[in-house]
Computed example of a mutant assay.
Amino acid sequence: MKIDHVTIRQLKMRMKSPFVTSFGSVQDKQFLIVEVKDANGLTGYGEGVAFEVPWYTEETMKTSWHLLEDFLIPMVLHKEIGHPSEVSTIFHSIRRNNMAKAAIETAMWDLYAKQNKIPLATALGGMRKAVEVGVSIGIQPTTAKLYEKIDHALKEGYKRIKVKIKPGLDISLIRAIRERYPEVPLMADANSCYTLENLPLLKALDQYNLLMIEQPLAADDILEHAKLQKQIKTPICLDESICSYDDAKTAIELESCGVINIKYARVGGLTEAKRIHNLCEENNIKVWCGGMLEAGVGRAHAVALTTLSNFVLPGDTAGSSHYWEEDIIEPKVEVKEGLINIPHEPGIGYRINFSALDRYTVKQHQYS
């Protein structure tokens, strides 16, 4: 592989409704699209999913652009690269900034698959023809609105419901959902808003038969999650704590969780995501693929990753229409009876809707 041109675009797209978590609300989503082009004109696409505010990780959309422009693009532009799995090694000298790395690393995976005329899922070693999908529902203004969201998701066939919780909106919320939906596969996402001082509350969640509780304690913690997991029956799922293969290895050795949410952007790309997937499979730790409110390009990469064998729990790769009136890919990512069928076309398997891409672009620059 040899990259002749790289283009970064900054896009702004309005979500159908605000997505609210314990740390903030998003409706006008700004993000990056990275395009890598070879001498034959083939183009691979990746998505930079960092938020404008550093509330999920330390990265922002602006820091991602800075890292790409000043460091990451110069490291791969016009260089001979044998395989996209080498990109993470090339970036090894750059500390963290995983979402910036993933934005261009995934684009190079897409290009590689197109060059070899195979679907990205095949290039990654995926075997599934379709993947099960769950849905993530942000904090709602009323319980009635939450029920409306859950009813709609179940009607569309989603295999699992995830709801956001926070102090003051946790036990009562889960109890209400369980009373109305006693059998629905349900999990709670805390986004790091509790401490071990909340142990009685977290233990009380055991009675509601949750699939898991996601990231209850600090984002950079693995040790206290191990202490917590020993005292509650509900499996802990680690998200923000797992930024690398080494983090996953430490969590497994300390028995800090029963499940790991693998977001390729959080760990620096598809190569590191695969390594973590394989490690978890070897250690009987279930994994699933989380979401970052991606548009179509990022969502397509997540769908391809989820075809790997140990993604045994439904992910957050909801269909495009769950978030957007119009996406930047064609066709949209569609969920049918709780499943997304894997496209057969080379690369991510979806065409870019260039009209939409241009309309939502607020800034762009090409590097050659």
Rank of each mutant, 00 (worst) to 15 (best):
K2L: 14
I8C: 10
S17E: 13
V20A: 07
F23I: 11
S25H: 01
S25L: 03
L32Y: 06
V34P: 01
A39S: 14
T43G: 04
G46D: 08
E47S: 09
V49C: 11
P54H: 06
Y56W: 15
T57F: 09
T57N: 08
T60P: 11
T60L: 04
M61I: 14
K62P: 00
L67T: 03
L68W: 12
L68S: 03
E80F: 04
G82K: 12
A103D: 02
I104H: 11
I104D: 13
I104L: 12
I104R: 09
E105C: 01
E105Y: 05
N116P: 06
N116V: 02
N116G: 04
N116F: 11
I118E: 12
I118W: 10
P119C: 01
A121R: 12
T122S: 08
G125W: 08
G126W: 15
R128Y: 11
R128G: 01
V131Y: 13
E132C: 01
V133C: 03
G134M: 03
S136V: 12
S136N: 10
I139G: 00
T143Y: 13
T143S: 12
E148P: 02
H152L: 11
A153K: 05
L154C: 00
E156H: 11
E156D: 12
E156I: 00
K159M: 11
R160Y: 07
R160C: 04
I161M: 07
L173E: 00
E179N: 15
V184I: 15
P185K: 06
L186H: 05
M187W: 08
E197Y: 00
L205Y: 15
D206P: 08
Y208K: 03
Y208F: 15
L210C: 04
Q215N: 05
Q215H: 04
P216T: 03
P216A: 08
A218W: 01
A219I: 06
I222G: 00
I222S: 05
H225R: 05
K227C: 01
K227F: 10
Q229S: 14
Q231G: 00
I236Y: 07
D239K: 05
I242E: 02
S244G: 10
I252L: 08
E253V: 09
E253D: 13
E255D: 11
V259C: 08
V259S: 00
N261E: 09
I262T: 05
I262L: 08
Y264D: 06
A265H: 14
A265Q: 15
G269M: 07
L270G: 04
T271R: 09
R275Y: 13
C280A: 09
V287I: 15
W288T: 03
W288C: 04
G290P: 13
G290L: 15
M292Q: 15
E294A: 10
A300V: 05
A300D: 07
H301G: 13
A302N: 13
L308Y: 11
N310W: 12
P314E: 00
D316H: 13
A318G: 10
G319L: 06
E325K: 06
I329M: 07
I329P: 09
V333F: 06
E334W: 01
E337C: 03
L339I: 09
I340P: 03
N341T: 13
H344G: 03
G349T: 04
D358P: 02
Y360Q: 08
T361S: 13
Y367A: 10
